[in-house]
Design a protein around this nucleic acid. Structure first.
Lengths: 346, 346
DNA sequence: CCATCCAAGGAAACCGGTTGACCAACGACT
DNA sequence: AGTCGTTGGTCAACCGGTTTCCTTGGATGG
């Protein structure tokens, strides 16, 4: 019953179209160092389609051409942020004729294994590396093995191949919203220190707080997890002596916001009546929290597409460079923010 | 500065070890159709390690051997369930000398593209297909192209190659817990109908409810999302005339539980004082909800490993068969369940 | 009318492994 | 002394593409 029980090969297409392997290869790869009659070209394409021909990736790779595959390395897939980035990358890669593979490297634990499996075994042409931390083991490996790659989300200093978002503007967006509601003491739950987007966001927060003339701008750091958010929130909710109590919090991730919600509730405070909360990054679950969480949505999908564009450009020989995706953050208003001291919703 | 600027090839290892390519290949692949002196074998291994040799996957694949790669196809990566499964699969695959690639197929939208990219281009030896719905386009494609594959999580009827969990026991576990607390009217939020694990869980729920002699066992269906959970919860919270009000809900996914929490709150009911709630599948976020969610944790990691075992066995020529992973569900007690009508915590 | 040139395509080497067939050397056996 | 069986390997073909260099036939130019 098998319609195509066995893969069609290049030679099958060639025979069927009445031309040589070389011609088929050149036609299908759209090379113009060859002149072919339009009708021949046409026939080759038709036969290839009819046979469902797909070049064997290994054979291509062997023959010196590329594998037409990329890999996206993310630190943790249970962070849905990376899922969105990955979708953007996958889609754009496909448009460019590449396949984007997804690999999780658990903050560098298995980075070298992954590198060996994917790069050394010749499965991919290049690497998209999301959120590499400083001293990530891969950085050294990459310096020894010249493989096209870009860093995304977290910049690697001086690499000259970073693809990032305008995280500073996300702080500005969140602050403007809270300030407009009347908040004057706003706290920020930052990510771990030493990580670029985390520090950029925090610095922008402090800078813009100052320019808004806010009374105080306390910051606490924590992992991008629920736990990190909860711990940092407790810290910010317990002001140092003589300091004013915060009336709003702005977190660096959605998970942190969820942790913060829990901490706020444990303190017997209400959201948004007593404390307003703005999270970073938007996901469906935000709408179903109690109260629904107001967030600053970042252009994660675009980050993925931009990273692929940059990597493919590098693979094709263009020199790499830093890129910032142009789309600006977007405030998604839900129920977790209100005027300070108000008894009602915003 | 490049230590190994260029990949070491088989021939490099051979030259360095003073033997032929064939010998190196056979030694490294552990073939016993060849006799080699232990010292030669040793030397080959040492040289290979010293050179950081990795066989080129394309070349291996071409030469008729396998690619040593598998692909796991999941319908949606933002469902963290699949992330856990994927980690189990990746790890076990690695132990067996395989690389497990992860691909998202958006409920079949891109299934054929993915199939072409991975199987027809010869990148993988087999497919792990998670949660295939009936009439999934891949099913037909697979029937035409004989590729080793297994279905996991959701069984495909009569395929004879399903790897599943004991979902019936998860219903029993949840019910026993709620029944022991004194609940007598327990509702179940099921997944979409027509999907095996969903129906198995529901059937087991109904069966065990009956055997416990529960007054009523209302069921509502919904997608595995927050939205599906919220809608189904509202349905169950509005009893038909003459029917008793539920005092507890058991959902099929964590996302549904989150949606249900929201619906319960919107009704002005409290958890767990008015309604107890048990979710299915455990994730860190469950601990940070308000209240922390009691869940039935399923052996997702084991599901991944078992699926890889089954697939690799099939690749190595053993006939496929259905497998149920033996580990039983585990109740994770947190704060979302209490005695019915109680004012306090459990 | 012959040399030249260009359009159109073909032949063959090569990429890096795997594999079955083959072979040399040596000891044992007859 | 000749033969046989082992041990310990080697040889070379092959997998399915890509790429470089050729070839060929007809049109064109002188």
């Amino acid at each position: 019953m098998a319609e195509q029980p066995v893969r069609a090969r290049l030679v099958d297409v060639a025979r069927e179209a009445g031309v040589s392997k070389a011609t088929v290869s050149k036609v299908l790869n759209g090379r113009q160092d060859l002149s072919v009659r339009p009708e021949t070209r046409q026939r080759v394409h038709e036969v290839a389609a009819a046979l469902g021909y797909r070049p064997h990736s290994g054979a291509r790779a062997l023959a010196g051409a590329s594998t037409h595959a990329l890999a996206l390395l993310v630190p943790a897939l249970n962070n849905p942020t990376y899922v969105t980035i990955s979708r953007g990358a996958y889609q754009r890669a496909r448009e460019l004729g590449y396949l984007s593979l997804l690999a999780e490297d658990f903050d560098g634990q298995e980075a070298d294994d992954t590198f060996n499996d994917l790069v050394k075994e010749g499965r991919v042409d290049g690497l998209l590396i999301a959120s590499a931390r400083p001293h990530h083991p891969l950085l050294e490996t990459l310096s020894r093995n010249p493989v096209p790659h870009v860093f995304l989300n977290r910049a690697v200093k001086d690499s000259g191949r970073n693809v990032t978002m305008d995280v500073a503007r996300s702080s500005v967006t969140a602050l403007d919203h809270l300030h407009a509601l009347g908040h004057r003491v706003i706290g920020h739950i930052a990510g771990p220190s030493g990580i670029t987007p985390s520090e950029d966001r925090r610095d922008a927060f402090l800078r813009h707080s100052a320019s808004l003339g806010l009374a105080a701008a306390p910051v606490a750091s924590g992992d991008f997890t629920e736990e990190g958010g909860a711990t940092a929130a407790l810290e910010l909710l317990t002001p140092a002596e003589g300091k004013a109590q915060v009336t709003a919090l702005y977190t660096s991730s959605l998970a942190q916001a969820i942790g913060a919600m829990r901490a706020i509730h444990e303190r017997g405070l209400r959201i948004p009546e007593d404390i307003s909360l703005v999270g970073n990054d938007d996901l469906p679950v935000a709408a179903y929290l109690t109260p629904p969480l107001t967030t600053v949505a970042m252009p994660l999908h675009e980050l993925g597409t931009a990273a692929v564009d940059a990597l493919v450009a590098e693979i094709q020989g263009k020199p790499p460079g830093d890129v910032m995706v142009p789309t600006e953050p977007r405030l998604v208003l839900r129920g977790s923010t209100a005027r300070p001291g108000s008894g009602g919703a915003s």
